[in-house]
Design a protein around this nucleic acid. Structure first.
Length: 572
RNA sequence: CGGGGCAUGGCGCAGUCUGGUAGCGCACCUGCUUUGGGAGCAGGGGGUCGUGGGUUCAAAUCCCGCUGCCCCGACCA
């Protein structure tokens, strides 16, 4: 394509409301434009990247034996009532009414519709297993859309749903999907991990998430370097304490700690290590007005997902605010402690084996030292409610874990019969009996992948597309084409040659000054850049540079360029 | 939804405190010069100052309401 014909507006300055690099660069490079909160226009160059991702996903899904279909984005409420989710789903579900006041929703996901299809179409076990997929626009009315296309309200997703007679068959398809996902992310050129995920409401069913590693990721994952263990911290068990609780050696003493609230402040003030203290967090209990206390060792971090799963604690986890704590417990949050605290005490296992520890005295400016369980306070429940930290033993015993941040781009899980049961999706088995089918479902965030790829592949000058996702493979940059006929002619010849070779090529024929052209080239991130200028043309040469090696360029003979690029680019 | 902030040309901002008829940089258009890392000079176009009301001789500026957006928390591809 000729750049002169691509309506492209780039921004030299970073838009003020873009927080993460991918969002900033996507706006600056003219890939997307915001329409409203969480709604984005995909501009021509951006859409090309989306299509690249879709194509790879489609190829690998097809290769895995899945079959593509397309369901409506708008879905009737009746189906959602059948599954029970019309009531459960909450405000994230965008509900609509048509002119007859019939209720619909804009699909955030398609379990109901696909199960309805399956129960109509699938009559015999002979038709199983089957794995349907689609690539389609979803809408989720997120509480807080942010980070551009990374957490948009409307987004493109590949969703697949498989149907099986038994769990052995489900296991097979699940594994096939896991492998297909690995091939997809490998081909996209992304650094990713798949991790065991919190299966949440679905119960004990198997679930894996695929994360692109990036510091800006919203999820924390832990993985072992010695084995293939990897998990979302939300569900990685913390190691049990090694040794039993030592006997008390100190008496409980109240000490004045004026103005000291955080664990660090109190530890420094008293000269005790943070791991010898305990922090107390107040969250909602299952009844609306009830509160419970979570007790953690001072240096540990609360794991909200684990805590929310415990009986007696409201899910999702909901913190009491500062004012409520003051009103009901009579002190600021920074002065809380388990001693004489009239709330159920959920104590993390690592905090429960401390003796002679430090904690708040439930009075402003006062802490207790020499506190001991049994004598000074009693846990109501000892549990695992903390994060597994970097460097701690891996749950599979393979050595220490590393911790990293990730962007969730894929999620596969075994649904079981949740929807098939509720919606009566059955087939006849070999014995002629009606059997409820069992299901799996498999999602990939297509548009999120585009943002995640940029988070992982950029420098201070702009985007560096992985080859498989680049909107174009080659960018031809003629310098001084308006003054030098040779430059112009060579550029045109190369442009034609490249296209004949099936290489997706962008010709910058806008006649810009070199500085501007190079700055835009870096911003757009096309992998292979070829400069045509009088300087090298004299020696019948061109200047080649890969976007990744910004400071290393090499000279290539004009008539050798086709071969040179052919070795580096797989034609499409 | 709770807490904080912002709304002035396409983008980034100043002007608001102390009311006096809108300005800067980038981008855009024209001309000349320039041409290997976001050029220079000259000229030019474009703004109901988010919106509705109020105060006032006079409102971007003061007061009240509404809307939109961003940031921090719980949800997810």
């Amino acid at each position: 394509m000729r750049l002169s014909r691509l309506p492209l507006t780039t921004l030299k300055e970073t838009p003020a409301d873009a927080e993460v690099v991918s969002h900033q660069l996507m706006l600056r490079a003219g890939l997307i434009r915001m329409l409203a909160a969480g709604l984005y226009n995909w501009m021509p160059l951006g859409l090309k990247v989306v299509r690249k991702v879709e194509t790879i996903v489609r190829e690998e899904m097809d290769r895995s034996g899945a079959v593509e279909l397309l369901m409506p984005a708008v879905q009737p409420a009746e189906l959602w009532r059948e599954s029970g989710r019309w009531e459960q789903y909450g405000p994230e579900l965008l509900r609509l009414a048509d002119r007859h006041q019939r209720e619909f929703c804009f699909g955030p996901t398609h379990e109901e519709v696909i199960t309805d299809i399956a129960r109509r179409e699938l009559k015999s076990y002979r038709q199983l297993p089957v794995n349907y997929y689609q690539i389609q626009t979803k809408f989720r009315d997120e509480i807080r859309p942010r980070f551009g296309v990374m957490r948009a309200r409307e987004f493109v997703m590949k969703d697949a749903y498989s149907f099986h007679l038994d769990s052995a068959s489900l296991d097979e398809t699940y594994e096939a999907m896991r492998l297909a996902y690995c091939r997809i992310f490998d081909r996209l050129g992304l650094d990713y991990r798949y991790v065991r995920a919190d299966s949440g409401a679905i119960g004990g069913a198997l679930s894996h998430e695929f994360h692109v590693l990036a510091d800006s990721g919203e999820d924390e994952i832990v993985y072992s370097e010695q084995s293939d263990y990897a998990a979302n911290v939300e569900q990685a068990p913390a190691p049990a304490p090694q040794s039993p609780r030592p006997a008390p050696t100190q008496e409980i003493i109240e000490v004045d700690t004026p103005g000291q609230h955080t664990i660090e402040e109190v530890s420094r003030f008293l000269g005790t290590p943070p791991e010898q203290s305990v922090k107390t967090l107040i969250v909602r209990g299952e009844e609306d007005s009830s509160l419970v206390a979570l007790i953690l060792r001072g240096d540990h971090r609360l794991n909200a997902a684990k805590a929310a799963k415990l009986d007696g604690i409201r899910s999702p986890l909901y913190f009491a605010d500062e004012a409520e704590v003051r009103e009901k417990l009579g002190c600021p949050v920074g002065s809380l402690g388990p001693v004489d605290l009239d709330l159920p005490l959920y104590v993390d296992a690592s905090a429960a084996v401390l003796s002679d520890f430090v904690c708040g005295a439930n009075r402003e400016g006062v802490h207790c030292t020499g506190v001991n369980w049994g004598r000074d306070a009693n846990p109501d429940q000892v549990c695992d409610i903390r994060n597994l930290e970097d460097g701690e033993p891996s749950p599979d015993g393979s050595g220490p874990v590393r911790s990293a941040r990730g962007i969730e781009v894929g999620h596969i899980f075994q649904l079981g019969d949740k929807y098939s049961q509720a919606m009566d999706c059955t087939v006849l088995d070999p014995d002629g009996k009606q059997r409820i089918v069992t299901m799996g479902c498999y999602g990939i965030g297509i548009t999120r992948i585009v943002a995640a790829a940029i988070e992982q592949n950029h420098d201070e000058h702009g985007i560096i597309w992985p080859d498989a996702m680049a909107p174009f493979s080659v960018l031809l940059c003629p310098i001084g084409a308006d003054r030098d006929a040779a430059v112009r002619d060579v550029a045109e010849i190369l442009y034609r040659q490249c296209r004949e070779l099936g290489i997706e090529t962008l010709l910058d024929d806008r006649g810009l000054r070199p500085g501007v052209m190079f700055a835009e080239a870096d911003l757009l991130g096309i992998p292979h850049r070829v400069v045509i200028s009088p300087r090298t043309l004299e020696q019948e040469k061109l200047e080649y540079r890969h976007r990744r090696g910004r400071d290393e360029s090499e000279e290539v003979p004009i008539n050798g360029l086709a071969e040179f690029l052919g070795e580096r680019i797989t034609p499409r």
